[in-house]
Design a protein around this nucleic acid. Sequence first.
DNA 1: ATTAGCACTGAGGACCACGGAGTGCCAGGA
DNA 2: TCCTGGCACTCCGTGGTCCTCAGTGCTAAT
Lengths: 337, 337
Amino acid sequence: MLDERKLAVLRAVVEDFVNTNEPVGSKALADRHRLGVSPATIRNDMVALEEDGYITQPHTSAGRVPTDKGYRLFVDRLSSVKPLSAAERRAIESFLTGAVDLDEIVARTVRLLAQLTRQVAIVQYPSLTRSSVQHVELVPLGGPRLMMVVITNTGRVEQRVIDGLGSVSESAVNDLRAMLNRAIAGLPLGDVPDAVDDLPAQVDPEHRHMAVSVLSVLLESLVERHEEKIVLAGTANLAAVDFAASLRDVLEALEENMVLIRLLGEAKDPSMLTVRIGEENFHEGLRSTSIVSADYGVGNQSLAKIGVVGPTRMDYPGTMGAVRAVARYVGQILAGQ
Amino acid sequence: MLDERKLAVLRAVVEDFVNTNEPVGSKALADRHRLGVSPATIRNDMVALEEDGYITQPHTSAGRVPTDKGYRLFVDRLSSVKPLSAAERRAIESFLTGAVDLDEIVARTVRLLAQLTRQVAIVQYPSLTRSSVQHVELVPLGGPRLMMVVITNTGRVEQRVIDGLGSVSESAVNDLRAMLNRAIAGLPLGDVPDAVDDLPAQVDPEHRHMAVSVLSVLLESLVERHEEKIVLAGTANLAAVDFAASLRDVLEALEENMVLIRLLGEAKDPSMLTVRIGEENFHEGLRSTSIVSADYGVGNQSLAKIGVVGPTRMDYPGTMGAVRAVARYVGQILAGQ
DNA sequence: ATTAGCACTGAGGACCACGGAGTGCCAGGA
DNA sequence: TCCTGGCACTCCGTGGTCCTCAGTGCTAAT
């Protein structure tokens, strides 16, 4: 069905269309690629490719354009991830070193990725679920209020104000803090709920109310919003593209964090690149975009995802190379923190 | 020069143009507004207004369009801030209550403002400079590393990892923490540098190195990035507008945080609304946008700014009303935290 | 199986005519 | 002196027509 040459034609169509953004015809293909056959032959192959749904004509007497299915085949079988140039790798390093805290690492990463790919970059904050508790701090704020700060081994800090505790004695807070840290310091966050289950029983009744309040806020802060935080950059790059869907729809989709999280989250295989093309995206506004995403993490442990959103007509090998490289470097930086 | 009627004409031109986005002619004005004079008279007034630079014709035989100068006069003298409807005020309240921490307050505020104005909203995080130190926490991370967490009275938390300290003894950390908090808890951040100046001298020589490192990181964290954090929402609303400058330029400007900070920062008068119109913005990409901004804070103390970016052709009274109302509510919420 | 040749198709650009909104100006009226 | 009705003019935008041209599908020859 699809012999070598037909695949070569498809590859050429994708590459040319990505470059020129114009339907590509048989003659142009014969000129620009060394396929060794005449335009007429290419036309015959194109008919076959079109029957199989890999390319399509916008209208009669126009060249061909890849379909989503065509891009899919291209990504799966006809292309390989393009490694970054030395200059690009140096850029990554100089860009990411010197970040002072997690916020800055994430902010720099997302700008970097947007710049490398000239598309919209997305970076998810390291998930709390897979990290572990470094330390819990309790700070009396005066009156009936207390601030709780949870520090994780991925550099992330969650804080909450706890109110309505009645009077808070300094020593009770100290006791509770010590007890808490004894119970959960070093534990993976997933194990925290079990570990604190019987703590209230160990607190003397006078302060049990406070302990219960603190624990409930602690548990809530760990489960509820654990993966919500996402940062974007490079939306200006969208303006250059003309989408089938309106630009507005795309921008709107990008502002809905939950959508983005689901998009990134559906990667099949950790530490692998995932590519979702056009119609494969469940979200209406993103039907004419493709998303390249990858996990990043420390060691084998995947902490979160990064990704790039662009038109289906994107440079897949280059984008995949950039995403993969940035994901690796971020992992290294986080490991060194 | 500019009698009452000419001003009324200018006001009508601005209002109609904002509504329709089309040059407005003398006949349309006479029909839609009760100016009590004929189109011919309006035409004469328009000529005067054009000579003075308040309106302009895109081309002969087209209606008139306000210039930046015209909008300026409209904002300064011809319009008043439009109070929000009861429904809108309810929306603000329900939207902002229930935020658990500063991040969420800011995130909700910016989305709210974007939604109310149907434009791009900007919210700056509360400045550290005007707030004071609530508490400083030092947490040994094991080995030569230490985490420092500074909590301010505006709910903001800054954290830093300090490395390369040699061995860190538990008791030395405890001493330093206590000393630090004695010295600076409750102080405005601006006073911190003076207050810690002579602290190293009080530490026994064995741990002085650690104290110096911690202090330098502390000072750096307070001054360096104090006002950098900014959040955007509603960029999708830009897609509906067609700018003189390209949309790309506007989006690019919005991604440069330093530009935004300067834009917001140039408000003349705290607690007042500031409006910068078109050419008044120093940034190239924002020459065809207007920016409405306001301070928010607790009591008389201004903590930071919020603002809205939209086309010069915007509903100034409505936008100003929304910005003012949201600024006030955020202040209240922060005060209650 | 490949290729050259050829007739056919449809999008897009150039050109043109025309309707209409809006203008400036002038002369007459309050 | 200020306002108004009337009028000729200007120019944009629209819609129609024509033409070019890139690209196609088909057929016959290699």
